[in-house]
Amino acid sequence: MIAIAERINGMFKDVRQAIADKNKKVIQDLARRQAEAGAAYLDVNVGTAARDQTGAMKWLVETIQEVVKTPLALDSQKLEVIKAGLEVADKPVLINSCQADPEKLDTYFALCSEKNASLICLTMDKEGVSQDVAKRLDNAMTILTKAQEHNVPVEHIFIDPIFLPVNVDQRQPKIILEVIQQIRLMSDPPPHITCGLSNISQGAANRSLINRTAVVMFAAAGMDSAICDVLDKELMDAWITAEMLLNKMIYSDDYIKAAIASLRR
């Protein structure tokens, strides 16, 4: 399981404030706690409020690297912000994210090749998020074909089937279960499947319960990664337990403790 920790994001008030004040302590504290909780990557998103987004990205990356060794997921819709992060990152990163339009994929996969980076690819294109299985699978196929053209190994590809909030479209989770299973059949070995987990409970009550139920369902279908709140212990425990029941790790009485120890870098 590859947990991408979501908390260092300018969308959160404390992070936004810390970026504005250049307050390292807040960022480094979040970095340490998320690494400790078992994050495989720390997502880094400057948010939309920062005036100098490339400068903010560089500052965040350097600030985080001072205290943890966990690799980073550079999260921005702007290529120049991603590139700013790449300039100062001291190890291979995960780029978050790129849509499935061929010309965009060309740009991002070329960058991945050059920087030995991995890439989260969304199964949506300029026409937006599709409502059905077939269109999402078309997009996934475009992604895998493009990756092959650029010689990006399949283990560097994270496909995100796109979760919409459950209170926006309740038919989606069932569709996504099928999409995940189908994407896994497209390549051997299959690409990673990831998601913006917290998105599914956006605007709902009982968010933590919805998130952890969703992660278990989608893990059973073959999802092996998620951008999520790793500080939500119940969520991580449920996910680890699902992985154990799927025989992805060996049971022991303290398997949760063992899993977290294995996940820490």
Binding site: Y251, S252, D253, K257, A258, A261
Partner: peptide
């Protein structure tokens, strides 16, 4: 017993 094997290692690391 593989499960106990793992558990002993956890106990030692604890």
């Amino acid at each position: 017993d593989i499960n106990i094997g793992k558990q002993v290692n956890i106990l030692l690391s604890d």
